[in-house]
């Protein structure tokens, strides 16, 4: 197994987990992406695009099937992040976690740069509101 493939798979796994909180589902998504890319040497950006397409198909098949109670405890930021619409999570994951250039992220999502910037701005504003809201709830709970 090449070092390159190994690094690529690790990045794909991290990206998948940003779009699906369940670790097994995320790994399944990575496997599907690697299967679709098989035998052709693809750039990581193309793999991200395939993974996004697969993830979106799932969103239309099972709209928001989530089990809130059964989840392991996780940081506040992830709770807020998971409450965002999928397209907001895609934009944030590409820029903040994968640290891609805005132009590359726009190409991966197949939208004009201006649309991508609008989406990123919207995602950050919503995330700030949700994360802040979370903190307020906690404060209220603490204060009784």
């Amino acid at each position: 197994m090449g070092r390159h493939e190994d690094t690529l798979a690790r990045r794909l796994r991290r990206f998948a987990r940003a779009l699906v909180s369940d670790a097994d589902c995320a790994d399944q998504l990575v496997l599907e992406t690697l299967t679709a890319a098989e035998s052709s040497c693809m750039h990581v950006h193309q793999l991200f695009a395939i993974l996004i397409a697969r993830r979106r198909e799932r969103e239309t098949l099972l709209p928001r099937a989530r089990a809130p109670a059964a989840k392991a405890p996780q940081p506040d930021i992830l709770r807020a992040f998971e409450a965002l619409p999928l397209i907001d999570r895609e934009a944030l994951a590409l820029v903040v976690v994968e640290q891609l250039e805005y132009e590359d992220a726009a190409r991966i999502l197949d939208v004009p740069l201006a649309t991508f910037i609008a989406r990123l701005t919207q995602a950050r504003a919503t995330l700030a509101r949700l994360a802040e809201g979370d903190r307020q709830v906690v404060l209220r709970l603490v204060k009784g």
Binding site: M1, E5, D6, L8, A9, R13, L31, L78, V97
Partner: peptide
């Protein structure tokens, strides 16, 4: 905060299913 929460996933060992997949993909 988001980077800190998600970055460590890339340091986790790969699950066997994915290791086998990328081995099979190398011609």
């Amino acid at each position: 905060a988001l980077r800190a929460a998600l970055s460590p996933i890339a340091d986790e060992p790969l699950p066997l299913s994915i290791v086998l997949k990328i081995r099979a993909a190398v011609p």
